[in-house]
């Protein structure tokens, strides 16, 4: 169990979050080793990555013992970098400095979010405790690191949160992750004979392939800056915020 804590982004926000830490402790004592990693942003949110084997039990515990009665949503993340690139690289962007190769490479190597992740697919769910007004984001890795993308499955939450039904169906069709014990796992949006799982990163977005990204051509000038942005320096120019109400005669406004 590893914990990471980022400092609160705002000075006003409390640096320590006792309520969430207490919650984390309670969950930790209940599940022990099943909790793989946690991430706490004080005053804002709590992420817990849990062993997929304990996924279904987590719902039972959270709903019945911790009064996380409100089921917010359930979804998944495909951490694989898209094989089609970012679909957002164009010569124009390189010119204006919106994209540089190093950064793009960094992006490729970037980690797997808060609370980490070991596999390509990760399931994410969020529940709320309305009496303490706490939200909690749960994550679980799905499958082994090199499991075939077809045999992904995890326990269902529908027994505790019936509202998870549709969310799990959506994940099933969009990511091809099946849920054991789900009462009626079939496609939600797509026609029954649709092949592929659209939200996986290796599912091509045809519209973007047919008509590639034109580049950032629509950078919007700030109201107080009538002159065109200079392309070379644009990347790190901070727009000067207007000190008072902006003038309405500004020709750039009307564009």
């Amino acid at each position: 169990m590893t914990d990471t804590t980022t400092e609160a982004p705002d000075d006003e926000v409390v640096e320590t979050d006792e309520a969430r830490e207490a919650l984390l402790e309670a969950i930790g004592s209940e599940f022990g080793d099943a909790i793989i990693e946690t991430h706490l942003v004080p005053g804002r949110d709590l992420w817990i990555r849990i062993d997929p084997a304990a996924w279904a039990d987590t719902a039972t515990y959270l709903r019945n013992r911790q009064r996380f009665r409100f089921f917010n949503w359930l979804s998944a993340i495909d951490w694989m970098p898209s094989p089609f690139g970012r679909s957002m690289d164009s010569e124009v962007d390189k010119l204006v400095g919106a994209v540089d190769e190093e950064e793009a490479a960094e992006e490729e190597e970037a980690g797997t979010g808060y609370a980490g992740g070991a596999t390509r697919f990760q399931i994410v769910a969020r529940v709320h405790n309305l009496s303490t007004l706490q939200g909690l984001t749960l994550k679980a890795d799905i499958g082994d690191a090199d499991a075939s993308a077809e045999s992904l499955s995890i326990g269902t939450w529908t027994h505790e949160y019936p509202g998870a039904n549709w969310h799990e169906r959506e994940v099933y069709e969009m990511y091809g992750i099946s849920f054991e014990g789900h009462p009626g796992l079939r496609k939600l949006y797509l026609p029954g004979d649709f092949e592929g799982h659209p939200l996986r990163k290796d599912f091509p977005l045809l519209a973007r392939i047919v008509k590639p990204w034109p580049g950032i051509v629509d950078v919007e000038p700030m109201p107080e800056l009538p002159e065109k942005p200079e392309p070379a320096a644009a990347g790190d120019t901070a727009a000067e915020a207007p000190a008072d109400a902006p003038s309405t005669e500004n020709p750039e406004d009307t564009q």
């Binding site: 949110d45 992420w47 950064e103 950032i216 109201p223 990347g235 727009a239 915020a241 207007p242 008072d244």
Partner: peptide, 29 residues
């Protein structure tokens, strides 16, 4: 009174991280 824009880079790049923000919309959360 005051400005309506904070200091924002012209080309918006969002640093690595995750955030969940919800608001009370007309239809619900």
């Amino acid at each position: 009174s005051g400005p309506i824009m904070a200091k924002v880079p012209r080309i918006i790049k969002v640093p690595e991280g995750e955030a969940y923000v919800e608001t009370e919309n007309p239809l619900g959360v």
